[in-house]
Write a protein that binds this DNA or RNA. Structure first.
Length: 420
DNA sequence: TCTGGGGTCCTAGGACCC
DNA sequence: TCTGGGGTCCTAGGACCC
């Protein structure tokens, strides 16, 4: 039996912990660069603010009481950790699925206590962390997601929905009431395609012919169907696997033309990507970079990308940066207005398994690794970017500020809330 | 003026092998 | 006229998630 626990409008709820005055007020949190809305409270929803809408389209609502925040990932990350620890205090086997969501294994519990357990989790999250939440409990992950969706949509259900507490007729009614696109794993594309085939509700989808689903779609959708039928295909994954791909990219605050800005931005991204790589004890074989113009502007579009494959995996910021800068020179074309760039590391493997020496240069990866780890240490202790590549300082024009950021209440001494 | 960032999995098709 | 069969690995692109 799986439980899916999900923090309600998580980022907004995090902001509200330290701003109780915002209770029952419309609040939204914006994406990186204050681009678009990524979280909204029910009050903001009621103002007609849709998910992912660009900020400039809703800015005028601030005069009507809407409060907006830039994303404060330091705060959200820390609250998330507390949230997961609290859930684990009730159900120790958990799989952290995203910053605000986790699956928990309630296998050991007898059916009579499932609902109670769900409420206990909710209560502790509210009391201990200050985050409102909903819990869905079902025999499969996809059904648990579905139950969670119902709990969120219908507050009268009390925030906890247990699938097996319902009779078949009530279950069917729920399945018939929800659109197929609400299901986890079915996006807009497949949702539309299914609707055109006259499969509109979740119920329609469950009774559809499996062979047809597989033929017209893929095994992925076939699996979703099985899961909705109560046949578990997905299991709890407690230990997170190392990433197979690491992407770091960002849009610029304004359009950029000269190569210096791109050089600085690319080295910034490479540095962060390499840090992530080392954090999971990995090295990479392929490095890609991309630079692109504004995708919302019609004129003069350009997307430049290039990849190199290395014979030996590396986690060295220096080496990766050198390669990335060479790639940049290859794809850079003057006379374009660039809006975004990024790096992608692939071909990732563990650095402990089989470290190979580079025959040509004779360089020992272990030495490089140790050096890099030391650098990481210093930066962790004395602050990010204490030691950095000089090329990063070529220009900072591409950075954009987060203008509506709340204090880092829980992770920075200078931001700790003091009540007189 | 203004539109996010970071991931995963699956499939198809090409190159290559015996 | 007629041109094997089976397999692996890699990459690009699509779809999806939060």
């Amino acid at each position: 039996v799986f439980a899916l626990v999900d923090g309600n409008c998580f980022y907004c709820s995090c902001e509200r912990i330290f701003r109780p005055d915002l209770k029952n007020k419309p609040v939204v949190v914006l994406s990186n660069n204050d681009g678009c809305v990524v979280a909204r409270t029910p009050e903001a929803k009621a103002m007609g603010i849709k998910m992912a809408v660009p900020y400039f389209q809703i800015a005028h609502l601030e005069q009507k009481g809407l409060v907006t925040f830039s994303s404060n990932y330091e705060l959200y990350g820390n609250i998330s950790e507390r949230m997961m620890q609290t859930i684990a205090s009730v159900a120790p086997r958990i799989e952290i699925y995203s910053i605000d969501e986790c699956f928990a294994d309630l296998g050991g519990l007898d059916c009579a206590h499932l609902k109670e357990t769900g409420h206990l989790i909710r209560h502790r999250l509210a009391q201990w962390v200050g985050i409102p939440s909903c819990v869905g409990i079902a025999p499969t992950k996809t059904l648990a997601k579905f139950c969670n969706h119902l709990a969120k949509k219908y507050p009268s259900l009390g925030g906890v929905v247990v699938w097996d507490d319902w009779s078949t007729s009530i279950q069917d009614r729920a399945l018939k009431s929800e659109n197929i696109a609400e299901v986890w794993g079915i996006g807009r594309r497949s949702g539309n395609k299914l609707e055109n085939m006259n499969i509109k509700t979740v119920y329609d989808f469950i009774i559809a012919h499996p062979a047809m689903i597989r033929k017209k779609f893929t095994v992925v959708l076939e699996r979703v169907q099985k899961e909705l039928q109560g046949i578990a295909c997905l299991s709890l994954e407690e230990i997170s696997e190392p990433k197979k791909m690491i992407i770091c990219s960002k849009s610029f605050g304004k359009n950029i033309q000269d190569i210096q800005n791109l050089q600085s931005a690319i080295s910034f991204h490479i540095t962060r990507a390499a840090e992530k790589l080392r954090q999971q004890q990995s090295g990479c074989h392929t490095i890609s970079i991309f630079i692109s113009t504004d995708r919302f502007k019609k004129q003069q579009r350009y997307y430049g990308t290039h990849t190199v494959t290395l014979p030996n995996a590396t986690c060295s910021t220096l080496k990766l940066n050198q390669i990335a800068q060479d790639l940049l020179k290859k794809v850079y074309k003057p006379n374009h207005l660039y809006k975004k760039c990024g790096v992608v590391l692939g071909g990732i493997e563990s650095i402990n398994d089989h470290r190979q020496l580079d025959m040509l240069t004779g360089a020992d990866e272990k030495k490089v690794c140790d050096l890099m780890m030391t650098l990481d240490h210093i930066n962790r202790r004395f602050g990010k970017q204490t030691i950095r590549l000089a090329i990063e300082d070529l220009s900072h024009e591409w950075l954009r500020k987060r203008e509506r950021m709340s204090p880092r209440y829980t992770t920075s001494m200078s931001d700790v809330l003091i009540i007189n």
